[in-house]
Computed example of a mutant assay.
Amino acid sequence: MDWGSLAGLLLAVGGIAAGQMLEGGQARSLLQPAAFLIVVVGTLGAVLMQSGLRNFIAALRMARHAFLPADDDHARLSRSFVFWSNSARREGLLSLERYCEREPDPFIRKGLRMIVDGTDGDRLRLVLEQDINIYERRERGVVKVWESAGGYAPTVGILGAVLGLIQVMENLGDPSKLGAGIAVAFVATVYGVGLANLLFLPLAGKLKARVQNEVGRREMLVEVMAGLAAGENPRLIEDRMAAWAA
């Protein structure tokens, strides 16, 4: 669990609730099922229409990564590449074939397979950089789902406010129903702005940073694998891996 992300979300929501109570209000007054339904379902519906079902489902799955610690496999990869480099210098590049299927990372596995097949460093860079571009474009498209949600939520919140005011206008002759309509009107705006700025946009920013870090990781791996294909000294490969960790 990434406790920083969870703590940040709880701090933001808790601060708003505490401020509400300090002003003499009650936290439960912010709990309006009708406003929640309008804002959340309306926002998700608009995002689904824009992004399509595939990206929408991928975005829901990706969201959990904002609350999970990033995988740190640098030490393992550093040891592996140095070992593979030594093995290639002693026994030739074909000796790497037995390590291909054991490697859990499909990106590295593909690079090793290309090295075993005799692909030169320039061609390897070209192919793997194309893979990185495809990965980045796909993942950024998924992250954009949450950015879009951050854009739609405040507008849908205003729509909820208008609907609440319509209810108020329709019941001017019955004062007992005015409070519910006014509550929906104001709380819907709070939900829209709050979800956009406390959840959707921070979530998109966190996931975008994750994608960028993975792109940087893969770019470094391309250089290391190109060096491995060219028969570079294992110490040079180790230095490159150390520079990536710095």
Rank of each mutant, 00 (worst) to 15 (best):
N55S: 14
V40K: 06
Q32A: 15
R61C: 08
L31E: 09
L44T: 02
A35C: 11
R125H: 10
F36Y: 15
R76L: 10
G45R: 07
S51D: 08
R64L: 09
D73V: 08
V40H: 07
R28V: 14
S85K: 01
R79T: 08
R64N: 02
A66E: 02
Q32G: 06
Q32H: 15
L48D: 00
V116I: 08
Q32W: 01
R113N: 12
D120K: 05
D117T: 05
G111S: 09
Y99C: 05
K110F: 08
E103D: 07
E91N: 14
L60E: 00
L37M: 14
F83V: 06
L30A: 05
L77Q: 13
L124C: 05
L48P: 01
G42W: 00
P33N: 04
L93G: 03
V47W: 00
G42S: 08
R61G: 12
L96S: 02
T43L: 05
I57G: 00
A75W: 03
L93I: 10
A75Y: 04
E97S: 09
L68E: 13
R102E: 11
F107M: 07
R28S: 15
Y99E: 11
L44H: 13
K110W: 06
E101K: 14
P69A: 09
S80F: 03
S51H: 13
A59P: 00
L37C: 14
G42Q: 00
G92R: 04
L30Y: 03
D71F: 03
D71P: 01
I108W: 06
D71K: 15
P104L: 02
I108M: 14
R79H: 12
G92I: 06
E103F: 05
T119M: 13
A27H: 09
F56R: 02
D72A: 06
A27Q: 07
E103G: 00
V41P: 01
V39K: 04
G118P: 02
L68T: 13
R64G: 05
S85R: 03
W84H: 05
M62D: 06
R125C: 12
F36N: 05
S95C: 03
T119S: 11
L60Y: 08
S87V: 10
G92F: 04
L68K: 11
